[in-house]
Structures are given as C-alpha cells and as structure tokens.
Simulated scan of single mutants.
Amino acid sequence: MTPALVGPVWRTLPWRGLAAAGTLGLLLAAAPDAAGAEPASWETLTLLRGVALIGALGLAFLLDDPARNLTAPVPTRRPLRQALRVAMVAPLAALWWTAVLLLAPSASRPPAGDITVEAAVLGVLALAGAATAVRLTDEARPGPSVAAALLLAAVLVPLLAPESWALFVPPEDPRWPAAHDRWAVLLAAAAVVWGVCGPEPLGRWGRRLRGVGGPA
C-alpha cells in the first residue's frame, strides 16, 4: 500500500510554500557574506534563529491536504500518511539546514549542534501544531493558522518566559548549556504531542466510515 501512496502524496505536498521558505532562508543566511562585513556573534545567532523560524513556517503547511475528506476513510491510517509526507521532506530539510550553516559567517557562527537543536524544536513544533489542528478540526488546510500561532509564540516567548526558563540566550551567556537542555526537553515534548495527535480519532473515524458505506 505504501508504494502506491508515494505518487499521490508527493503531488499533494505544498512544494511552492516549502520552496519559498527555503529560498528566503538561504538568501538571508548568505546576506552577510554578500554585504562583505563580518557580523557580531549575536547578529549571526539572530539571523540563524530567524532562518530556522522561516523553515518552520514552511513546515507548518506540510500536513495541508486538499483531499483530506476523501483520504480519511482509506485503509492506510493517517499516521502512515503523515510519516510519508515527513519522510519525503526530511532529507531536503536536512540538506537545506546544512547549507544555511555553511552560508552563515563561520567566525561568528554559534555552536552548530546547539543551534540545530533550536531549529529542530521549531520544525517539530510546527508539525505538532499541524497534527493537532488536523486531529481536532476538519480543516483541510490548517497551515496558515499554525504558521500564525508559531510566529506569535516566537514573538511572545522571549518576552514572557521567566528568567529561570530563558531560551534565547547568546553563546557567551553562562546559561547557554542549561538553555539548550530546556530546548531538548521542548523537542521531546513536541515529538510526544505530534505522536499523540497523529492517529485518527475513533469517533470521527467511525462517523466517516458510516458516512461512506452506510445508508444516505
């Protein structure tokens, strides 16, 4: 069943939005070199965090499926369909982020592993938000709402988070290691939310099956 899904799933992926986010991210990452000036470390860190957010905003649209109401009753369960979407995009996303790190000014670039964890958290949060929207609503294209919520969270969290849970700190800050321990916790929590929201709710599954095969 899975090989038969590859073609249809590939055609329904939001390639234009993903390509737009990826291109914008690469252009921003390359901007300091194009300007010919070496930015300060905090400027490069802010740039990379902004690029990671752009990539996550693109991933917020990954689970958009115009044919959702038609594919819900098929034998292949939704977690497999979602996993197939992610599997198709994940290698490209990894290559894209590698290119972003290589384009960023090396002299002022923050530790690659730590900033990659931050980027992974944003990406998984976008997917978890999309999966939650798909599970709790009948919206076929939750991407715009998820992207707006992610963008709002990116603005509010640095302003409202208590000092004991500071996340957006510079590498020279002594809180940097502890902050990235918290990033790792967020990554695990977002992955759990995504996993919990992956399956089709049994009540809705039953109603849709009855609607397809039952009396009119």
Score class of each variant (00 low, 15 high):
V146H: 04
D114Y: 10
R109N: 05
T116G: 00
A104H: 05
G113W: 07
S145M: 06
L125Y: 06
P142I: 08
L152T: 07
V146T: 14
S106V: 07
A120Y: 03
A147L: 10
A140N: 04
L103R: 01
L101N: 07
P105W: 15
V134F: 06
P142K: 15
T116L: 02
T98Y: 10
E118T: 03
R109S: 01
E139H: 13
A128M: 11
A148T: 12
A126S: 05
A148Y: 14
R109G: 01
L127V: 06
I115L: 14
A120K: 08
S108T: 13
L102K: 15
G143M: 15
A126E: 12
A147Y: 04
P111M: 15
T98W: 08
T116W: 00
T116M: 03
R109E: 05
V117G: 00
A128W: 15
L152E: 11
T132F: 14
V100L: 05
D114H: 07
A126C: 09
L136Y: 14
G143W: 10
P111Q: 11
R141D: 04
L102C: 03
S106M: 04
P111A: 03
D114N: 06
A147N: 07
R135M: 13
A119C: 06
D114G: 00
E118L: 13
T98F: 09
L136H: 08
V117T: 05
S108E: 10
V100Q: 01
V124I: 07
L103N: 04
A149V: 11
E139Q: 08
V146N: 02
V146I: 08
V121R: 01
T116P: 00
L122S: 02
L150M: 10
A133Q: 11
P142D: 03
